[in-house]
């Protein structure tokens, strides 16, 4: 099983030379997709803002200023301050770095695991039973106690191996990835089950195409659209889950802002300082929207029936 799942990315690199023109096609198609370009621009802008922004708006997001708490927007504090006098704008930018990184990496991990298991289960009849029962198992495990066990077993080990911040990052990404791949796996498997009985796959098989090649050339491109939807939903899910983790003591320390955490902490202050919740909420939504449109564009670009139309 691990053999098969490992072979997919290897295969992709192997075939790169032959596909170069394909990716060129895809890119040119992608550029003509208006929504995709807008999505990409928004996403890049958000990334730029959180990476470059803190060098322009140089207030320390963790700096407290009790005298200036619960302020509305002003030139000094474009998004106001929170109940400890921390600058919300600086916090949103600092939080974005973590949230985007966690969101994208955890989403990729869960997508990879989910797709691999889904394709394998759908394509190889022998693997279907065991892999789907494994999926059932993961779906059934109670999340909160599981997280508490994971914290207890791994936090201190990872902390001593990678240092406090990297260690926690690895743990969070791993935890989110490992607890959110099941839906993708079930959906991909469902699609693969129909695909593998369709004419083009049967034809490919009848001329003796090896399974790995059928998967990479015929199956994967055709299950791309549910995977893209999963990716969009996965980012939002990862950003929110990350904030839930920090309440269990699994996430980053409490004074380390992330979008999900800002939204949660600010929720009760909604009527007092609305900007505390509007901006982090908007940031999450815009990111997800951006990724969604990019996914749309990518899917269209990769679909040979649409490409070149």
């Amino acid at each position: 099983m691990s053999d098969e799942s490992m072979s997919n990315p290897a295969l992709a690199t192997e075939e790169m030379p032959e596909r170069r023109s394909l990716w060129g096609d895809v890119w040119s198609q992608f550029r003509t997709h208006k929504g995709a370009m807008v999505g990409a621009v928004v996403f890049v802008l958000i990334c730029l803002a959180v990476v470059v922004g803190p060098y322009i708006h140089t207030l320390d997001p963790q700096r407290l200023d009790i005298l200036n708490k619960n302020l509305g927007p002003s030139w000094a504090h474009p998004m106001g301050t929170d109940n400890l006098g921390r600058d919300t704008f600086a916090q949103v930018m600092a939080g974005g770095r973590v949230s985007l990184l966690v969101g994208v990496v955890a989403m990729l991990l869960s997508l990879f695991v989910g797709t691999a298991i889904g394709v394998l289960a759908g394509f190889f009849k022998k693997l279907d039973g065991p892999l789907m029962r494994l999926t059932d198992l993961f779906l059934a495990l109670p999340l909160l106690p599981l997280l508490l066990v994971i914290i207890m077993l791994f936090r201190d080990t990872l902390r001593s191996m990678f240092g406090p911040e990297t260690g926690i990052f690895i743990l969070i990404v791993f935890v989110i990835g490992i607890t959110s791949w099941m839906q993708t796996a079930r959906i991909v498997r469902g699609d693969v089950l129909t695909l593998k009985e369709q004419e083009f796959v049967v034809a490919a098989r009848s001329i003796g195409t090896p399974s790995r090649r059928i998967i990479s050339r015929h199956i994967l491109p055709n299950v791309l659209s549910p995977i893209m939807v999963s990716a969009t939903l996965g980012i939002a899910n990862a950003i929110i889950t990350e904030s839930a983790l920090s309440f269990l003591g699994l996430g980053f320390p409490s004074d380390f802002p992330t979008w999900g955490r800002l939204l949660y902490d600010g929720a009760n202050f909604m009527q007092l300082t609305p900007s505390r919740v509007i901006w982090p909420g908007l940031a999450i939504s815009l990111t997800v929207l951006g990724v969604n449109y990019m996914g749309d564009g990518l899917r269209d670009a990769l679909d040979p029936r649409i490409r070149g139309r």
């Binding site: 963790q62 407290l64 009790i66 920090s246 003591g249 409490s254 004074d255 902490d265 009760n268």
Partner: peptide, 27 residues
């Protein structure tokens, strides 16, 4: 949330003293 706010404030005072603080909150 009140305890985490207290932690953040005390951390700031201690850092003024030249003491480094790492915060941790547990369920």
């Amino acid at each position: 949330s009140v305890r985490q706010a207290t932690q953040a404030i005390i951390k700031q005072w201690w850092s003024e003293l030249g003491i480094e603080t790492e915060l941790r909150n547990i369920d």
